[in-house]
């Protein structure tokens, strides 16, 4: 962890730039007013966690920074690794415990070198069943409608190419379907569907958050910087195609979010499981830097409702 921490502080200096006193005081005062509003009076806040394999562990850092700042979150959606992290968070797991789970999450995805060898030698798709079991161990065999925060995740039906947004029924199998990387894991058969990773159709599921009623959305995006990668094997090339497809989809989805936070994890590839802690730290750094802008955006979005309280009866 210490070695990872050494690498991630470049550019953190932006945090210390002076801002006008009036802006700071106004944000402080209005943030107190917005964050103390009853949840049913302020805009419903959505947190959207993108796909992104190991890079997506940065979402944990984003959640940690939001939690430290007391930032309210009502709705969580995620795709692939975003679905795993999002389900744990929406299922009631505190940020501090999420932070400690990074190693388990990597194991939970079953994506290690031995399993890949099995895939290559026997041409046999891997099972992602272990993730479902692991998830149940973490948050129980929850149903969507029993989660402490509203949650949805996205998968794709391999037979129809449809985007499937899960928001009811059991959580664990839906999350498993959402992170079921095609070509590596065998499709999940569920509700007469043949389900694979949702990143192929919905890399940043802002639409799913809106569907759950989110009126204001913060999207945590962990895209791969594929322009810098030169894959030299079949798997690397295939994965890069997924990433390129995801990035094209992300362009449209990110426009639908009110604020986008992008941890600097673009150089972390799917096989860099050892860089998980570094990704988490980068999530904290990115969200901490973005926090004032994020608060300001939500304040401005809430202004019409605040004005109703502020005007004399």
């Amino acid at each position: 962890m210490a070695a990872a921490l050494l690498l991630v502080f470049a550019g953190a200096s932006g945090l210390r730039s002076e801002e006008p006193v009036s802006d700071r005081l106004m944000r402080e005062q209005l943030w107190r007013e917005v964050s103390s509003m009853p949840a049913d009076e302020r805009p419903k806040v959505g947190l959207v966690l993108s796909a992104g394999s190991v890079r997506g562990l940065a979402h944990i850092g984003v959640i940690q920074a939001l939690d430290d700042a007391g930032f309210p979150v009502d709705v969580v959606t995620g795709t692939s690794i975003g679905a795993i992290v999002g389900s744990l968070y929406a299922g009631g797991m505190p940020a501090s415990k999420l932070w400690a789970l990074n190693k388990d999450i990597s194991l939970g995805t079953n994506f290690n070198k031995f399993r890949l060898l099995e895939l290559i030698l026997y041409d046999k798709l891997l099972s992602s069943k272990k993730l479902e079991t692991w998830l149940k161990e973490q948050i129980g065999d929850l149903q969507f409608d029993k989660m402490p925060k509203r949650f949805a995740c996205v998968a794709m039906d391999l037979k129809t190419g449809e985007q499937i947004i899960f928001r009811e029924g059991p959580v664990a199998i839906a999350v498993r379907a959402s992170m079921n990387l095609p070509g590596f894991f065998e499709p999940v058969e569920y509700r007469h569907r043949y389900l694979v990773d949702g990143a192929v159709v919905d890399y940043i599921p802002v639409d799913a958050a809106r569907l759950l009623g989110a009126e204001w959305v913060l999207a945590s995006v962990t895209e791969f910087d594929y322009a810098r990668a030169n894959p030299t094997n079949v798997m690397g090339t295939l994965l890069q195609i997924f990433d390129i497809r995801g990035s094209i989809l992300a362009r449209e989805q990110r426009k639908l979010a009110n604020v986008v936070v992008e941890p600097a994890v673009g150089d972390i590839a799917i096989e860099h499981i050892h860089r998980g802690p570094e990704a988490m730290v980068k999530g904290v750094v990115a969200m901490t830097r973005k926090l004032p802008e994020t608060e300001e955006s939500l304040i401005l979005h809430t202004l019409p409702r605040l004005m109703k309280h502020w005007r004399a009866p």
Partner: peptide, 14 residues
């Protein structure tokens, strides 16, 4: 003070 000005503009709009 861009944020303070944005809040003031938002209130004026309301």
């Amino acid at each position: 003070s861009p944020f303070a000005a944005a809040v003031a503009k938002g209130m004026l709009k309301e």
